[in-house]
Design a protein around this nucleic acid. Sequence first.
DNA 1: TTTAAAATGAGAATCATTTTCATTATTATA
DNA 2: TATAATAATGAAAATGATTCTCATTTTAAA
Lengths: 153, 153
Amino acid sequence: MKMILILNKKVMSLEFNRFRDHIKTLGLRLTPQRVLIFEVFLQTEGHFSVEKLFQKASDLDPQIGIATVYRTMKLLTACSLAREFIMPNGSILFEKSSTQEQHDHLVCEVCGKIIEFEHPKIRQYQEEVAQSRGFSIYYHRLTLIGICEDCKK
Amino acid sequence: MKMILILNKKVMSLEFNRFRDHIKTLGLRLTPQRVLIFEVFLQTEGHFSVEKLFQKASDLDPQIGIATVYRTMKLLTACSLAREFIMPNGSILFEKSSTQEQHDHLVCEVCGKIIEFEHPKIRQYQEEVAQSRGFSIYYHRLTLIGICEDCKK
DNA sequence: TTTAAAATGAGAATCATTTTCATTATTATA
DNA sequence: TATAATAATGAAAATGATTCTCATTTTAAA
C-alpha cells in the first residue's frame, strides 16, 4: 500500500477528514488498509454488502482480510460516514451517509430495487410520538416493503 | 400431547381458526406439536424470542424440538398471527399481530423497553410516498430508537 | 533506537437459523 | 381395516455472517 494515495486530491475530502479525525480522537491509527477500505467505500455507490467491499478491496490489495473490512466499517459507521441498512430478509447493507441528509427506503420485494425518500412530515410526527411518550430519538429505521412500478407489469 | 386441548374453548378462537385454515389451505397437517406451540405463542405477551417460546413449550412437552418451533413460527407469521420485530441489535423477536391493528415501535437503547404506537398520519404519508414512486406497500417497518423517560433520569 | 501500543490476517469460534435424514405419525385410498 | 403415500418430527449437522483470538507486523512515541 502506497501512502501517496492519501495525498490524492479526491481523497483529501471532508469525508476523509472526518474519518481521520474520528480515528485520531479514539487514539487509533490511520493505516494503509483503513485508507484503502475507506477509498473503496467512497467509490461504491448505492447499497452494498461487506462482502462486496471486501471483493473490491481485494482487487487492490489481495492481502487484505475481511475482518479488517468489518472493523473499518464499524469505524465508518461510528463517525456517520456509513449507515447500516437492514434488508427485509435481514441481511445488512451499507450506504454512504451523505453528511446531514437523512432518508428512508422503499424496497421492491420482487426485484430488490431500493429507492430512497425523505418526508419531513413523517420525521415531524415521529418526533411528536416520541415526545408524547417521553422518549428522545437517537435515530430511526423506516422501510416500506412492497412492489415497484416495473415489477407490477 | 392430548388432542383434547384443541377442544378447549379458549383455544377455539378466531386465531386458532386462522391458524388451522392456513395449515389446511397449504395441505399441511395440524399436529399436536403445532397446536402446543400455537398455544404457548398465544399465551405469551409482549415481544419474545424463539428461544423463549421453545423453553415454555419444552416445559409442556420436553420432547419438542426447537426446529419445530422455528417451523411453526414461520406458519404463524405467514398467516399474520405473528409479526417479526427486528431489534436495533439485529436480534429477532416475535409478537402477536392482533388481527388488523398495525403498530410501530419505540425502543429504549438503555433498558430495552419497547413501546408500541400507532400514528395514522405517518401511515398516510407512507402511502403517499409509495404512490408517488409507483410502489404498492405490502408492509413496513418503523422503529424509533432512543432513550426512554425513566432512563433519562 | 527501543519500547509500548495498536493493527493485521488467518483461521477458529460463535450463534441463530436452516437443512438433512431416519423415524414416526397422519391422512387418504383400496 | 389395512395399506400406501405423504408430511412432520427431533436430533444433529450444516450454514453463513460476524466476531474473536492470537502470533506477527506495523506504527508512534520516548
